[in-house]
């Protein structure tokens, strides 16, 4: 494609095409489970690109958090809902055309601005020190320069955990009447990740005597 030597650019193009194809699979797949699996493949390709960028720790983190936790959580929820894929019932040709045009305009704008104002092309050297591979640097920076963001992120994780616990609760008496009349009387099929253990305990306790 370019004048670059094929040996050096082959892994980049391989993983780039893998990532882009998997991302396109997320968009075009009618089945939501297949879309989530394509997203997982795209995350794996992006982790490989992180390896090529010598950010090894972030590659491991991408596999662990995104491909491990996020994609599995998505698959869990999709299989919990048992919805039929969610493809549009009638073809959204106008919407598809407009959104495709918008996405293409976004892409063209980005590429043109990149081509016009790319000042980093001359400053794309072979950096002698590998910056992203040293875990000691991570630890040092996280506990000196970025100490406040670390604390705030920990607090954010706590808040997110409490929020998910609140959202996943069974609707009590403090919720609105419309929620009760819409969701009341139906047997709970699932969706509560945090309370099933308690309910199972209470069930087993009620069965024991």
């Amino acid at each position: 494609m370019t004048q670059l030597q094929p040996m050096a650019e082959f892994p980049f193009y391989f993983f780039a095409f893998l990532t882009v194809l998997a991302a396109a699979g997320v968009v075009v797949n009618r089945n939501a489970v297949n879309a989530a699996l394509c997203l997982l493949l795209s995350f794996m390709g992006m982790a490989a690109l992180f390896v090529l960028l010598e950010a090894y720790f972030l590659a491991v983190l991408q596999v662990l958090v995104y491909a491990g936790a996020v994609a599995v959580l998505f698959l869990f929820v999709i299989m919990l809902f048992d919805v039929k894929g969610g493809d549009p019932r009638k073809p959204y040709q106008k919407v598809a055309a407009v959104s495709g045009l918008l996405a293409l305009a976004l892409l063209i704008t980005g590429v043109l601005s990149l081509a016009k104002h790319s000042q980093l092309t001359a400053a794309a050297p072979v950096t002698t020190t590998v910056v992203g591979s040293d875990l000691k640097d991570y630890g040092y920076l996280l506990f000196t320069k970025y100490l406040l963001p670390v604390e705030m992120t920990g607090f954010l994780l706590l808040i997110a955990m409490l929020g998910v616990a609140m959202l996943g609760r069974k609707q009590g008496k403090e919720t609105g009447a419309s929620i009760q009349e819409a969701g009341g009387g139906r047997p709970e099929t699932g969706g509560r990740r945090l309370e099933t253990g308690d309910r199972r305990d209470s069930l087993s306790e009620s069965r024991v005597p």
Partner: peptide
Amino acid sequence: LFAIGFFGVLLRRN
């Protein structure tokens, strides 16, 4: 990748 994701956000109905 951003444009593909944007396209999907606009296009999909699920």
